[in-house]
Write a protein that binds this DNA or RNA. Sequence first.
RNA 1: GCGGCAUUAGCUCAGUCGGUAGAGCACUGGAUUGUGAUUCCAGGUGUCACCGGUUCGAUCCCGGUAUGUCGCCCCA
Length: 434
Amino acid sequence: MSNNIQAVRGMPDILPDEAEFWELFEDTVRAWLRGYGYRPIRMPIVEPTPLFTRAIGEVTDIVEKEMYSFVDSLNGEPLTLRPEGTAGCVRAAIQHNLTAQQPQRLYYLGQMFRHERPQKGRYRQFHQVGVEALGFAGPDIDAEMILMGARLWADLGLEGIELQLNTLGQPDERARHRADLIVYFEERKDLLDEDAKRRLYSNPLRILDSKNPAMQETIAGAPKLIDYLGEASLEHFSAVQRILKDAGLPFTINPRLVRGLDYYNLTVFEWVTDRLGAQGTVCAGGRYDGLIGQLGGKAQPACGFAMGVERLIALIRESGGEPAKRGTDVYVVHAGEAAARMAFRVAEGLRDGGIDTILHCGGGSFKSQMKKADGSGAAFAVIIGDDEAAAGEVSLKPLREAGDGQKRVPVDQLAETIMDALLDWQDENEREEA
RNA sequence: GCGGCAUUAGCUCAGUCGGUAGAGCACUGGAUUGUGAUUCCAGGUGUCACCGGUUCGAUCCCGGUAUGUCGCCCCA
């Protein structure tokens, strides 16, 4: 067993039961995105490595130790499996001049790769739904994107996802705060733990996140970013909050909310849950006004967010979400050579009529075919034996509560008969539920 | 990347104080010639994750590896 090749660690297979669940999730997500006017875009999974080092930031964890980077052995080009979607999306928008005429609302859905230690809700290959609004200065689009999230949770029947909000200000404001922060911690270096010392020059903002009780006092006295923000930044932040309040959406301002990617500015937000253990963030994003210019495009504001599909699906399961197992409409059972040949014609005819049909393949006794028909979840078995084949008819047997007993039906009336019975059955079910 | 815990039939798990193992569910076949789901009968050698060590003998003890899981780091 272990001699066989296994899936790469942290890159699990998604088997049919699970994959059907994913498709339902994706249907909901696509309908939700259409509701806000977002259009799909599909980028490659592999991009030139410099795209990510420039966009995400050289000293971030992602770039330093989590990227699947390799050299294309055929031409020596440095390539990387995308660890996130925004960089590639922005690259595509610049390359094809997408925002030359109009701002763009875009989304994508697909695999991302980060070499982290896997556990539940965190994988080396994982999936994100990314939503990007390019060319919008906000704060209206910021708030819209946040409100979108709330609607999706409702569409998915999820509760207990809370919104955390912060502002990072503009790069110059952040830079002054950062410089003062470093000075502040340098003066108190003996009070810092190893972790904090390591981050002092690479990521001093993260020191503020430390859970070390011994450092809390030092952290509390540190310079606060909000004191470095200019009027425009403060106004942008309060405008976002105003819209959220108007919409009645509760949120928590978390001054320690810092994104792991360098390109963010002004509004940042996270949707978090306490039901998934250590991986509580199911959706996160913010504004990145500098990125398009930084990647060589004409400077334009932008805002976006990404959701972790595995985490959201885990949360749906946690909340008792189970998709209604929907079987096929018809299972065709047949015995005898003439019947087998007719079965193909009948099955194709049913599909012409819009009826989902499984044709029994692989032989087996009548009994075993009927068992398979039942197991398939089909509403009807269509039975063809020598009698039926000779008469140009089939036996139609209801397997659930649809229709009223087994009967013979001419082949040319079969699709219509089944469709009518299915519709009646559907009506009955709806009436019962009401 | 660091630390803890786990790994027995397709699934969920029990078990052997070291003498190579079981249940439920699922699955397959059958209960008079062409009728499922209910009922009855029958059907499991699964390298007890892998490799090595201790032992007369290991699935059970020890070490390593792999994978999962929990926490840390970080993040979706």
